[in-house]
Design a protein around this nucleic acid. Structure first.
Length: 252
DNA sequence: CTTTCTTGGACAGTTACATCA
DNA sequence: CATGATGTAACTGTCCAAGAA
C-alpha cells in the first residue's frame, strides 16, 4: 500500500490524490477510451487489464525525454493534459524510462570496460612472450659465456650457473681468487643479429690492441668491473642487488 | 534558532499484465 | 491452444530535501 494510507491524518488534497491513485484504477483517457475500463484485483489491489500507451503517446513522451530526462511539475501537468493521462502516469513513465536508460547505460559501460580489459590482457600476453624470448636469449648468453671460459682459459671454470624453472640464472656463485685480476684484463663483447645475441671476450694483449676499436665501436667498454657486474650489465640489469631469479619471480 | 512533522520527488526493486514466438 | 520469454505500466518501500508548525 502507499505510505499515505497508514498515516494518521490526511491534511492535503495532494495526499488524497495519491491515495486514490494507489487504490483506484487509472481513468480511461482519450487514447484508451475505446478499450475496456481498467479493473482492480480485490485480492492484491493490482490493476487488471493494463493498457499500454498508444504509439502517439509513447512518441511524444520519448521526444520530451530526449530533451530532458526529468520533468518539472508544471511541465508534467501540461504533458499529462496533452496526452490525456494522469500526471502520475506521466511521472511513472519517466521513472521507468530513466530506469531503462540507466540499465542500457550500465550495459554499454560494461561492454566498453570489457573491450578495454581484453585489449590490456592481449598486450600483457604479448609482453609476457617477449619477456620469455628475452630470457631464453639470456640463457644462451650465459651458456656461451661458460663455454668461452672453458675453451679459452684452459680449465678456468665459471661454475654455479644455476637455473630455475628452466630459465637461466646468470649469477656466478664461485670464482677463482684471481678473478679480479683476470677481469681487469678481460673485455666482453656483446653483439646481436636478428636471431641471436652473441657474447665473446678477449684478453691480455689482444684486448689492448682492440681496446680503442671497441671504444670507437661503442661496444661494451673494457673496464675494471667484476665479471659478475659485466654479466649483469650485458643482460641489462644494472642494479646488481636484484638477481635475475628475482625478475623471474616477478614476471612468471 | 532548533526540532519535529509533513510532503513530494526520486530511485531500486518488484509485481502483474500484454504480447509474441 | 499452451507456454515461456520479454517488455512495460504500475506499485512498494525507502531516502532525502524543503517547508511549515
Amino acid at each position: 500500500m502507499c505510505r499515505e494510507v497508514v498515516m494518521p491524518q490526511v491534511q492535503h488534497n495532494k495526499t488524497i490524490d495519491r491515495m486514490e491513485l494507489c487504490a483506484v484504477p487509472i481513468e480511461v483517457n482519450s487514447f484508451t477510451s475505446n478499450l475496456e475500463p481498467l479493473k482492480i484485483s480485490k485480492k492484491k489491489n493490482k490493476v487488471k487489464n493494463k493498457r499500454r500507451f498508444s504509439e502517439e503517446q509513447t512518441r511524444l513522451l520519448e521526444s520530451i525525454f530526449e530533451s530532458d530526462s526529468k520533468l518539472e511539475p508544471r511541465k508534467k501537468m501540461q504533458v499529462a493534459e496533452e496526452l490525456g493521462l494522469q500526471p502520475r502516469q506521466v511521472a511513472i513513465w519517466f521513472q521507468n524510462r530513466r530506469a531503462r536508460w540507466k540499465s542500457k547505460q550500465v550495459e554499454k559501460d560494461y561492454n566498453i570496460l570489457r573491450a578495454k580489459y581484453e585489449n590490456l590482457a592481449c598486450q600483457f600476453e604479448s609482453l609476457k612472450k617477449e619477456n620469455h624470448f628475452l630470457l631464453i636469449q639470456l640463457q644462451k648468453l650465459s651458456t656461451v659465456l661458460e663455454e668461452s671460459y672453458d675453451r679459452s682459459r684452459g680449465g678456468y671454470n665459471v661454475s654455479g650457473i644455476s637455473t630455475k624453472d628452466g630459465y637461466a640464472n646468470s649469477y656466478c656463485e664461485a670464482k677463482p681468487s684471481n678473478l679480479q685480476e683476470q677481469s681487469e684484463n678481460t673485455t666482453f663483447i656483446l653483439s646481436e643479429d636478428s636471431n641471436s645475441i652473441n657474447l665473446s671476450y678477449i684478453v691480455g694483449q689482444e684486448r689492448q690492441e682492440r681496446h680503442e676499436l671497441l671504444n670507437m665501436g661503442n661496444q661494451i667498454p673494457a673496464s675494471s668491473k667484476s665479471t659478475e657486474k659485466m654479466i649483469y650489465e650485458a643482460a641489462g640489469f644494472s642494479n646488481q642487488p636484484y638477481s635475475i631469479s628475482q625478475w623471474l619471480d616477478f614476471w612468471t
